[in-house]
Amino acid sequence: MEKPFLVMVGVLIFMVFTVSIHYFTFDEKGANDSLSMVVEATQMAQPSWSVSYYEPRMFSSSNINNISYPEMLSTDRMDFVYVK
């Protein structure tokens, strides 16, 4: 049973090797440059949240969720995901 064990170890090493290749060859600079250029041109770096019409798209633009009950928090907002 030593042989199948060594084969299994070989497979695990191959998996780690594959991830390492992807990690070190990824064009990180290209991706960061594209983001930086858009931020530089627009002066805005808010993540492109895919939000409903009643949710704020930008930081600090609107905090009221429900006009009738401004203090009420609902769970279907992106605010629920991140801490303010």
């Binding site: 991830v19 992807h22 990690y23 990824f26 990180e28 991706a31 960061n32 993540p47 492109s48 949240w49 895919s50 939000v51 409903s52 949710e55 992106m78 995901v81």
Partner: peptide
């Protein structure tokens, strides 16, 4: 790693960016 950085984390990324408006096929930097 494969699911997030190669496939782009389908379904799970919507928890982070939401899915109520436009679909976002963003490139996640490893």
């Amino acid at each position: 790693y494969f699911y997030v950085f190669v496939l782009g984390a389908p379904l799970l990324k919507e928890i982070f960016l939401g899915g109520a408006n436009m679909k976002n096929s963003l490139v996640l930097v490893p």
